[in-house]
Nucleic acid binder design. Structure first.
Lengths: 195, 195
DNA sequence: CCGCGGCGTATGCGATAGCGTACAAGCGTA
DNA sequence: TACGCTTGTACGCTATCGCATACGCCGCGG
């Protein structure tokens, strides 16, 4: 009996998920098209499955593979302490006021910011930044007014209360086409993490 | 020459990442401890690597495995339109007022909420919900007052301006130990997506 | 007592992942 | 033309993944 060294202890996790769904090895085997003995070996860490079967196992557990493997994501809790207030941008010319609510960030995981767009103001130019690191996600909530979001050439019209989520590594910017200030709460989260 | 059907087209992605880092097959092979021919076969989808070597490849690309596989995450843009205002909870007994800012959500990807905690109030009980689906992340920003966060028994003290990120599938709750209202902006994002 | 159904695991065999090596093609230099 | 040196790929061989099958174990009903 030799136990292989794990890239990540996926075995116990599969076992836990299977138990939580109250499936036997054979039940899960039927659901995912992987033999029961194989499942047993994977759960006990006696073998390293190929991506193909790992993906089928994930499917049987109603997860995507990257979700099944998501336990190597690092610290479960990270706190960034408040520091001096970040200045915030205020561009009277364009009518764009932005305020980053989160403290500056080593090992950045998330950033909340609040934007106020005067009538006809926009965040950056059409092809410019804001553009975040590959894999990051942005969620924005329109709190007041009307906003037009341009992503990669596409145009979306949003009104107060609308919420949009998109891949933040695409070029994107917001505009205020209305005649009142628009207020936008934006959250950028969880991009790739290099090293 | 037979091409296997991919769980997810990881091959082209590896190739793209390798090109972006300007590494040859042998360079990457040295970095990650996987032979160059193997890398070539994986990139072209001629073989499905084991998790062990996939993880080493990911390591050579300075990514975690789940990050390397993260391309099955779905649509790049999703908009949830504003609907009627959600009522929001208001519990005078406990002193907890909560307001969910995002509209109700098919295919929920993110939820922003704003919590006001009167002195000595708390969000839920110590072991209760709020507890979100496996894999989800929560980021919270203390806007006013002082807050104590309990996660899985651990206790963290936060003051205005602090920002915390943690795995939201752990049991957690916030308390206000101060003598003024505490205001908390919370964002839950990107949990598991079943099927 | 036996039999029957379930459970997880040991066994043995094809198929193939993963290695070292050897190869063809594309560069710049002589 | 030949030469080094790079690039990515084809060739064999061994380790092992992944399967069907068989086994020991336990709880239940006869």
């Amino acid at each position: 009996m030799t136990t292989i060294e794990h890239p990540t202890p996926i075995g116990p996790r599969i076992r836990a998920l299977r138990d939580a769904m109250e499936l036997s090895l054979r039940d899960l085997a039927d659901r995912c098209g992987v033999s029961a003995p194989m499942l047993s070996q994977v759960e006990r860490g006696e073998t390293s499955p190929t991506l193909a079967v790992a993906a089928r196992i994930a499917g049987g557990l109603e997860l995507s593979l990257s979700q099944l493997l998501r336990l190597d994501e690092g610290a479960t809790v990270s706190i960034v302490r408040a520091t001096e207030r970040r200045p915030g941008t205020n561009d009277p010319a364009s009518g764009h006021r932005a305020e980053i609510l989160t403290p500056p960030l080593p090992g950045q995981r998330a950033e909340l910011s609040r934007h106020v767009l005067a009538p006809n103001a926009a965040t950056g130019g059409p092809g410019d930044p804001p553009m975040h690191e590959p894999g990051s996600r942005e969620t924005a909530l329109v709190q007041e007014g009307r906003v037009v979001l341009q992503i990669d050439g596409e145009r979306y019209e949003l009104t107060a209360g609308d919420c949009v989520t998109f891949d933040a590594d695409l070029s994107h910017h917001f505009e205020n086409p209305g005649s009142d200030d628009a207020v936008l709460l934006a959250v950028v989260s969880a991009g790739l993490r290099r090293s």
